[in-house]
């Protein structure tokens, strides 16, 4: 996964988009669209729907860039626009079992391999992680994804999930405990480490 565009750069692009700069729009689209797609796809669990909503979201970005007040990060703001475009039927969904591995048969992940740990996770740990992530609530799972897949800051996570920072802390803490206990059961303590906090 590519490193996300710094927020200061994203703000500059957004200002240019507000003035009707198509090149700036294309740059912002390329920088954020994979993450926005992933954000929507987790909530809709449907690739076509996610792609449609992603395009609709960026159309809104083009039209309302001038309305960005700068009180949040650009990524949070775009995620907020995307969340508003997701039909109600998809919101507040229950846990889904395949939340980590969205690959279809024969499909290779685009994400880069970051460390040797990833190689281990690709086999046994990956299956265990999939299983255990599926046992978390949607809110806990999304919180983990925002923190560790999108690399959102605590503030951004709170903005996107529209909760106070204290709730982000408790969600992450509960998710970590549940995940560790589940992984210890599935994989054994050796791979997970100490499950006591």
């Amino acid at each position: 996964m590519r490193k996300r565009l710094p927020d200061t750069d994203a703000r500059t692009l957004l200002q240019q988009i507000a003035d009707g700069n198509r090149l700036a729009f294309s740059r912002l689209y390329e920088a954020l669209s994979p993450e926005i797609y992933a954000f929507i796809q987790r909530r809709t669990d449907n690739r076509e729907t996610a792609e449609d909503i992603k395009q609709e979201t960026f159309y809104v970005v083009w039209q309302s860039a001038g309305a960005f007040k700068g009180t949040s990060s650009v990524f949070s703001w775009v995620c907020g626009n995307a969340a508003n475009k997701i039909p109600l039927a998809y919101r507040n969904r229950g846990p889904r079992a395949d939340s980590v591995d969205d690959l279809e048969p024969g499909e290779e992940p685009v994400a880069e391999v970051d460390s040797p740990d990833t190689l281990l996770l690709k086999s046994q740990e990956k299956q265990g992680l999939n299983e255990c992530m599926g046992k978390l609530s949607f809110e806990q799972r999304e919180c983990l994804f925002l923190a560790f897949w999108h690399d959102c800051s605590e503030q951004e996570t709170a903005e996107i999930q529209q909760i106070p920072k204290g709730t982000v802390k408790s969600r992450l803490s509960q998710a970590r405990l549940k995940l560790k206990q589940c992984l210890a059961r599935v994989l054994g303590n050796g791979l997970v480490g100490d499950t006591k906090d």
Binding site: M1, P34, L103, E107, A111, K126, L129
Partner: peptide
């Protein structure tokens, strides 16, 4: 690392 390994974009 585990989350990043399995999500298609």
């Amino acid at each position: 690392a585990g989350l990043r390994a399995g999500v298609w974009t």
